[in-house]
């Protein structure tokens, strides 16, 4: 196969996996009876591409010093995060039963914690993950390692000032192995992000902060995969602004603030699964 064909095969596999991941995310949120379905579904394609097409890791050796790192800065998206980690082999599917349950052996808490294999840092307070990811990326330089660090942020999260502190820092240090991804699903907990506090013009903002900026359709797997596998810039850190839809894949969840932090009822769950079949 030539390269184009290889990419095409890869992308079509990723599309299939993304469907699975969406179903799994909803399954574990439904079973837990609480969680954040909207922001998990919007990030499902990005997460699938990262873990099953892009990142270098060995789930049997989660602390491999040369692994690519991922920081789930939008920490509430554990539905998709744990689903992906489990499928990647960091832990078993059965372990997901303890998601959001007391005495969870792997600490599958509502928000991530490094006790869970595959998790680098605790998140859940928005705005911190990009700084952490930047610190990890600087670590690669000190260790002469070529690993890359990916941080997934929400669009609402960009209202946190610290994100822009980190943006300035990474540009200052030419941290080109840092790749930020914005899951721009347009909806935050209270309101649509634009009305809550508009973050646009977003490309201009990042560009003016000295970043290499790309904007893609975050549900078009071809675009997602290609953006995530671009060669690194020589100097600049990279941001991929992924336009997404909150609740993507489940018609009655799409674009709704009401599905930010509510688990589906049995009936809604059945309906959602049919749409994701």
């Amino acid at each position: 196969m030539d390269t184009a064909q290889t990419v095409e095969t890869q992308v079509s596999e990723l599309r299939q996996i993304a469907k699975e991941i969406r179903r799994k995310s909803l399954e574990i949120i439904h079973r837990a009876g609480s969680g954040h379905p909207g922001g998990s579904l919007s990030a499902a394609d990005i997460m699938t591409a990262l873990y099953f097409g892009v990142m270098r890791y060995d789930s049997n050796n989660p602390k491999d010093p040369n692994r690519d790192r991922f920081v789930m800065s939008k920490g509430h998206a554990t539905g998709v995060f744990y689903s992906v980690l489990s499928r990647a082999g960091y832990f078993a599917d059965e372990d997901l039963v303890s998601y959001r349950r007391i005495d969870s052996k792997l600490n599958l808490s509502g928000h991530p914690h490094p006790k869970t294999p595959g998790v680098e840092i605790a998140t859940g307070s928005l705005g911190q993950g990009l700084s952490v990811a930047h610190g990890i990326a600087l670590g690669a330089r000190l260790e002469n390692s070529d690993y890359k660090v990916y941080a997934l942020m929400g669009d609402g999260e960009l209202q946190e000032g610290q994100v822009w502190e980190a943006a300035m820092s990474a540009a200052k240090f030419n941290t080109n192995n840092l790749i930020a991804i914005v899951d721009f699903n347009k909806v935050a907990q209270d309101n649509i992000t634009k009305d809550l506090k508009d973050i646009e013009p977003l490309e201009d903002k990042w560009r003016s902060f000295g970043w290499d900026v790309h904007r893609i359709d975050g549900h078009d797997m071809d675009q997602v995969y290609k953006a995530l596998t671009l060669p690194l810039d020589n100097k600049k850190p990279r941001v991929i602004i992924a336009d997404t839809i909150k609740g993507k894949g489940v018609s009655f969840m799409e674009g709704k603030t009401s599905w930010h932090g509510v688990a589906p009822s049995d009936e809604d769950y059945e309906k959602a699964l049919k749409e994701l079949a």
């Binding site: 920081v71 705005g127 610190g135 600087l138 670590g139 000190l142 610290q162 502190e165």
Partner: peptide, 20 residues
């Protein structure tokens, strides 16, 4: 890190995860 303490503390945390 410049005058941005929150960013500094989290960057330190990131570096610490790499064994520093």
């Amino acid at each position: 890190m410049g005058i941005s303490e929150g960013d500094m503390v989290c960057t330190a945390a990131g570096l610490a995860t790499t064994g520093k």
